[in-house]
Amino acid sequence: MVAERTVHLTRDSLVRYAGASGDFNPIHYRDDVAAFVGLPGVLAHGMLTMGVAVQPVIDWLGGDSGRVLDYRTRFTRPVVVDPVEGAELEVTAKIGALDGERVRIDLTVVFGGQTVLGRAQVQVDLAP
C-alpha cells in the first residue's frame, strides 16, 4: 500500500475543473442535457477522476510529479455527481511492479461500491 485518499466531488468541483481544463461539455454541469442524451445524471469529467486519483501518488513522491513517467487508465463506469450530496471516491494506490528504480503503481478508484477506472497505472522513477 502506497497511499489512500477519500475525494469528495461536488458540482462546484466540476465547474472548477471545466474552467481549469477547458472541457465545457454540458453533460458535466447540465442535468437536462445529461438526461437528454440518456445519461444517469451529471457526470464528473473522466479527466477529473484521473486527475484526483493520481494525487496520493504525488504526495507519496513528496510532491514531485516530475517523477511520473507514464499514467494511463480506462474509464469504465460513470461518476454521477448528485447536486446536493456530491460524490465520494475512495482512491487506493498500491505497488504493482518493481523494476529497479522504476515502479508501477496501480490505482483503484471506487464510487458507490464499484470501480470506475480500469487498469489505472502510474509508472514512476524513484532514482535519486
Binding site: N25, P26, I27, V33, F36, V37, L43, H45, G46, M47, M50, V68, L69, D70, Y71, R72, T73, R74, F75, P78, G118
Partner: peptide
C-alpha cells in the same frame, strides 16, 4: 455530436 462524447481511455507518456 459533442454531448454524446464520453471519454473511453487516456494515456500520458512523459
Amino acid at each position: 455530436d459533442f454531448a454524446r462524447v464520453v471519454h473511453g481511455d487516456q494515456r500520458f507518456g512523459f
